[in-house]
Design a protein around this nucleic acid. Structure first.
Lengths: 225, 225
DNA sequence: AAAAAATTAAAACATATGTTTGAAATTGAC
DNA sequence: GTCAATTTCAAACATATGTTTTAATTTTTT
């Protein structure tokens, strides 16, 4: 009766560092999170079944409820892991507060991070899960994640404000943030099937980064003046 | 046994113009499509139950299968109706081929159409359903609708090509189309809940149209040169 | 008005799916 | 090696939901 559902609070570190003898390459728990991430990214929460996750992970169907209590509990953990995959708040802070870097270079850094992520989309399921949440937030969208997204958004708005020469909380900065970030968001979210049929010429290449950067800087300059 | 599932082919006009004596304000069929559109727009296909649709429409649960054969059949009809709500291919052709209008004005027209739609989003469920399909196409995404979307996309790429002084099927035009249209797409798709928490200053006002237009024209000019 | 057709309604049905159960197997501590 | 704790497994369970059925009701036709 002492089931694993209550183990979510136990430090993950201790579980990870324990030499796993049952499963050679990664504990059952990690196997489930990874399989779940891939399936959730592809199908979304509602269309995903725990049976498919367990099958892909090669574990028994009862494992989800044993380790995570419920499908929702698993999804929560997947969201946490998704954030880890992209960029931590600390990393982002470091870059945004780096005085040796121009604001234009910071923007370029964001674009290349986006492109790297988009190009790696098959391996990194995290960004797809998070973008799904942004477009269609699930009931399970936890406050703790909002607390992670909002600070990052605030950093971006600071950058945008400086680029259009306006306060971070001004309407102008909001417009700039929206106009700059939405193509990024869609680049990460857009269904590959649809994109390739509507815009087959659009490839994730250096050429595209240059176009985005040129287009964005010119647009921001127009907002500024 | 002569059930309504086979009536989908009968002209809707005859059904509409027939004096409806059972249901005063709109036939059962239309009631279902409208209720379904609202629920599908809000929750997506998977999370929507036919029982909720029927309850919202005030009809019996069996009505969906009676009139549309299945939940998928109903969804197909909702997609057809969604296209009708926005703009027809013919209307769009007329505008795009209007030689009395500058390309810049045509772009402005697109933006105001987008804004009108976004501001009316509560009443018009069609755009939300279509945007969901663009981001996460369902298995039911019918070829006939692709045949409606692709021609419209081609018209937009023609406009974009002229604006950046490049052929419609060039990489440059594809980049332009992507960079210009993605903020529009997201404006229509973005979860209101999330938008208002991340960008509370962003309202659907004339001010925003002006920002978008200025930003976009400057960006396109940069792509051109 | 009578008969036929179409529609509506309530309930039953079948299936998919999240979850629980209880036993078997494995692991780690002594 | 023994024993308790943990993990795995197969099966069962409960529920939600798309669908079907059958009869009652309404509408249309003649």
């Amino acid at each position: 009766m002492c089931h694993g559902a209550f183990m979510n609070n136990i430090s993950e570190h201790s579980r990870r560092c324990r030499s796993s003898k049952r499963a050679d390459r990664g504990s059952t728990r990690s196997l489930i999170i990874d399989a779940a991430g891939r399936v959730f990214a592809e199908k979304g929460f509602a269309k995903t079944t725990t049976r498919e996750i367990c099958q892909k992970a090669g574990v028994n169907s009862a494992a989800v409820n044993y380790y995570f209590g419920s499908k929702e509990g698993l999804y929560d953990e997947v969201l946490v892991e998704a954030h880890r995959q992209i960029i931590s708040l600390d990393q982002m802070k470091t870059i945004m507060e780096d005085s040796a870097m121009s604001d234009e270079d910071k923007l370029r850094f964001v674009f290349s991070l986006v492109f790297r992520t988009a190009a790696n989309a098959s391996g990194l399921w995290g960004i797809k899960v998070l973008m799904r949440e942004l477009a269609f937030p699930s009931a399970e969208f936890p406050r703790s994640l909002k607390d992670e997204i909002l600070p990052k958004a605030k950093l971006m708005r600071g950058l945008m404000g400086r680029l259009v020469n306006a306060p971070a909380d001004s309407v102008k900065a909001a417009h700039a943030a929206f106009l700059v970030m939405m193509p990024c968001a869609y680049l990460l979210l857009f269904s590959e099937k649809i994109r390739s049929s509507i815009l087959p010429e659009l490839a994730y290449r250096e050429e595209m980064v240059r176009s985005m950067h040129a287009y964005t800087m010119a647009g921001l300059s127009a907002l500024r003046g």
